[in-house]
């Protein structure tokens, strides 16, 4: 039950893109075509599925306060959690290199279409975010950590798949010139986040969820306005 709950929670409720707005750079850049979006989404699932449990092990046995107790009682007071960022990033970078080698070997077409974005997964905030959320939410076991990694990846995959299909659909829409490209993508993302609000508050229950919802939405709407101004500014810059 715990597993099922975590699974659905990380796909729909705490969706990486729509709830925390993580991993936006590759989400915006590689979502022009469904086929490449699927490739990148699968890569993200894979990398998250590996790095989160690995980082969980690191966190449990090296980084946490008292994690080094297994070396001997004199190490029990050590707290290496200030190293988590650098350790997590090192793990992620290594794993991404590995994925890159594997993909280049087995699927050159995908490798070519992903281009620069595969190495960029290394700095994709969704990946680091996954590990850091795993740490701060105190995921209890290795199995749950793996579950969390994979399901967050699936959530991100669904998001990029949906927006890629939408962008293919609106390819022939007469979007006002200043909004074409990234501008309209930001707006679509905001609107999609409204759709994903349907799951907000589920499983958590209670009235405090309602209160939280409200403030979250206000932030989101402001964010949308901000996105619009950002898009306008970039459009002006480009011109």
């Amino acid at each position: 039950m715990e597993h099922v709950e975590l699974f659905f929670k990380s796909i729909f409720i705490d969706n990486m893109v729509f709830a925390t707005f993580l991993g936006m750079c590759s989400y915006l850049a590689v979502s022009k075509k469904v086929s490449t979006a699927i490739g990148l989404g699968a890569a993200v699932i894979f990398v998250l599925g590996i790095t989160v449990p690995l980082n969980w092990l690191l966190d449990q046995y090296i980084l946490q306060e008292g994690a080094l107790a297994w070396l001997g009682p004199e190490f029990a007071s050590y707290d290496l959690s200030f190293l988590s960022f650098i350790m997590f990033i090192a793990t992620i970078a290594t794993m991404v290199q590995l994925v890159e080698i594997v993909v280049e070997k087995f699927s050159p077409a995908l490798y070519n279409s992903l281009g620069i974005f595969l190495p960029l997964i290394a700095v994709n905030c969704a990946i680091l975010g996954g590990s850091l959320f795993m740490q701060s939410r105190e995921i209890a076991s290795l199995g749950l950590a793996f579950n969390y990694g994979v399901s967050s990846g699936i959530g991100w995959f669904l998001a990029i798949l949906a927006i890629a299909a939408i962008r293919e659909k609106i390819r022939y829409s007469s979007v006002p010139a200043p909004l074409r490209g990234l501008g309209i993508t930001f707006i679509i993302t905001g609107l999609m986040a409204i759709g994903f609000m349907s799951f907000g508050g589920m499983l958590t229950g209670g009235d405090d969820a309602v209160a939280k919802e409200d403030s979250a939405v206000e932030v989101k709407i402001e964010e949308e306005k901000e996105n619009k101004t950002i898009a306008d500014n970039t459009a002006q810059l480009i011109q």
């Binding site: 609107l191 999609m192 349907s198 508050g201 919802e213």
Partner: peptide, 26 residues
């Protein structure tokens, strides 16, 4: 039934499926 935050979810469910309609079509 499940979401205590919203008494009724029809409009959100339709919005959500609006988001995924292009994916289904694809």
């Amino acid at each position: 039934v499940f979401n205590p935050a919203y008494p009724e979810g029809v409009f959100l469910a339709i919005l959500l499926m609006n988001v995924f309609a292009p994916t289904i079509d694809h």
